[in-house]
Design a binder for these strands. Structure first.
Lengths: 123, 123
DNA sequence: CGGTTTCTTCACCACTAGATCACGAGTTTG
DNA sequence: CAAACTCGTGATCTAGTGGTGAAGAAACCG
């Protein structure tokens, strides 16, 4: 076997604030501590983190995570966003990651929770 | 490549919390006290300890320990994880080492039992 | 050999995750 | 203000996953 157990295999790593995500390993770390996410939750996190800063439509998220087209009245994305939020908040109470843009979709971006988000979203 | 660790070569030693593992010697120490592990249990421990902190898929663990491909419906890994856990817990009751990530695999990481950082509060 | 330990596999069951539904809060419109 | 939407999220149902005791088979060992 190779002398170095730590192979130089390219481990894709996404960063978002205090979050570290390794898509290939199914691992998400918050301040170094592993989160326990379900497959759907994890994939959703990855899909959003990959489009950090952009508003992503539910249709796109659904396609990325579920692999098929979002059907009308399917609230799956909302439900899993909710689950993800509560786990992220449990791990990093001071930060907000997932922002809702009513009528458009969700935006993933780490942000201190201190500032209140008011005013009309720019559209 | 490392020479045969007979003479001058340092004995490979893995550390994980209060655990010390010497793969070449088939020895695992918990707070200095040797654990009595079977071959499979020991190899599994080594395989996991070498990837400390990462989530390792059952397929990978099986390949490392059994040397062949994991067949569908083979629960060997689960069974030995269970055995390992109970021996580790018997030796170090206050620590948890093997964490299950449903849908992904297992993660080996020493962790004080005190902190309770789960996801959402159980409904 | 006979007793003991280990490995493999099976079976049962608790628990988890996924899909949906349902209710309600908050917004927008007219 | 009321109707129509958009979202958040608890609850429910079901299928699937994982934990683990136990039975046999195989390997060990004095």
């Amino acid at each position: 076997m190779a002398a170095t157990p730590t192979s130089d295999a390219p481990v894709e790593t996404l960063h978002a604030g205090e979050l570290e995500i390794r898509p290939d390993q199914g691992l998400a770390l918050a301040r170094g501590r592993a989160l326990t996410l379900s497959v759907r939750e994890f994939e959703l996190l990855v899909a959003m983190a990959r489009r950090q800063g952009a508003i992503v439509k539910r249709e796109d998220l659904y396609r990325s995570v579920w692999g098929t087209e979002l059907r009308a009245r399917d609230r799956s994305v909302d439900v899993y966003v909710s689950k993800l939020r509560s786990k992220l908040e449990a791990a990093l109470p001071d930060r907000q990651f997932i922002h809702t843009h009513p009528g458009f979709g969700y935006r993933f971006q780490p942000q201190p929770s201190q500032d209140v988000y008011m005013g009309a979203p720019a559209h």
